[in-house]
């Protein structure tokens, strides 16, 4: 499979995606739904996390990827932009840097950035696809030596469903990666969390019950341990949007997300406590807005060079119908369920 961009697919245009999402339909606009529920417009609070998307280059081409990442993507953050992120961190008190991609480790400056952030005394999280540990043989040791928290994607505890979403052979390589991480202390002394997302157009299971299944099955079948499982709802963006449109599931999925709107999930949505930095330094309210080119708005700084913690910590959030993905059912965020 190639990226939407390489295939010159109409949905490789973010404007086309937004047009599809925001077109006329029975589902109300997200901002209107908040109002209807008696909730105020979404606004950020104190920044707990700087999430840095270091590029779209990836060694995998997952069918549900909201980034449209893959081996054929070339956009990666440059050293100059990384320096701007570090400068912003130096003048802020943000405690955690969450590094994502693509496969973030494929950025040539990834390891340098991690060590620089650690020098600032900040906690580092790496959103790792696990198979990259097989590509870069010394990566696991580097992450362990720097006490980087790993958030690893594993859509299911068995091979068939995992490979259907992430590609043939991914499950076995992921299991091998998890065993290496366990051997280095991950899942014990070092933080290892897994991410589940549904392999299709449906909502994730209860985080608590699924974590119980994952822990039991991964231990029983492979002797693997981990800390927490995060359930994340698939966002109708990029390749998952393509899947929805191609399979005739788009309208029903948007309606499912909207019908499952849970006001209790709203206060903890991740955009309220984070700022998302794009590979080119542009600022976004979250990684999903980033992939739709919906930059920070309402007068907030729009580039990392203009970073202003106080202004960003009281910014109003830019929303769209994709936001229903974070408020459906038990809620969804980079740290899993929110309600």
């Amino acid at each position: 499979m190639q990226s939407l961009l390489r295939r010159a697919h109409p949905l490789s245009s973010t404007a086309e995606q937004v047009k599809l999402l925001e077109g006329d339909r029975a589902v109300p606009a997200f901002a209107a739904k908040l109002k209807e529920a008696g909730l105020p417009a979404l606004a950020a609070g104190a920044l707990d996390v700087m999430q840095v998307n270091v590029g779209k280059l990836c060694n995998q081409t997952c069918r549900h990827c909201h980034v449209d990442a893959g081996p054929d993507r070339t956009e990666v953050m440059t050293r100059e932009t990384f320096e701007l992120c570090l400068a912003a961190l130096r003048k802020s008190s943000i405690p955690t840097v969450d590094i994502t991609g693509g496969a973030p480790e494929l950025n040539p400056d990834f390891r340098w950035f991690v060590t620089e952030v650690k020098k600032l005394g900040r906690h580092v999280m790496d959103r790792c696809n696990l198979t990259i540990l097989d590509v870069q043989k010394d990566l696991a040791e580097f992450l362990a030596a720097n006490e980087v928290e790993i958030i690893a994607s594993l859509p299911y505890w068995s091979g068939k469903d995992t490979d259907a979403q992430r590609g043939a052979g991914v499950f076995d390589r992921s299991i091998a990666g998890l065993k290496r991480l366990n051997a280095l202390g991950y899942g014990g002394r070092l933080k290892l969390n897994l991410v589940y997302n549904p392999a299709g157009a449906y909502l994730p299971a209860s985080q608590k019950s699924l974590e119980r299944d994952f822990k039991r099955e991964l231990q029983r079948r492979h002797g693997i341990t981990f800390h927490s499982l995060y359930t994340i709802t698939n966002m109708p963006i990029s390749r998952f949007l393509e899947f929805l449109a191609d399979t005739g599931n788009f309208e029903a999925y948007i309606e499912k997300l909207a019908n499952a709107f849970n006001p209790a999930a709203v206060p903890a949505v991740m955009c309220r406590s984070m700022i998302s930095v794009g590979w080119d330094g542009r600022l976004f309210d979250c990684d999903f807005n980033q992939m739709l080119d919906l930059e920070t708005g309402f007068g907030a700084p729009r580039h990392i060079r203009d970073f202003d913690e106080a202004a960003l910590a009281k910014r109003r959030i830019v929303t769209g119908r994709h936001c229903y993905g974070c408020t459906a059912g038990a809620g969804s965020s980079c740290g899993g369920a929110t309600a």
Partner: peptide, 12 residues
């Protein structure tokens, strides 16, 4: 069918 998938069951 949807409920089973959303509760974390697989096709097997």
């Amino acid at each position: 069918t949807t409920a089973c998938l959303e509760k974390g069951s697989n096709l097997e």
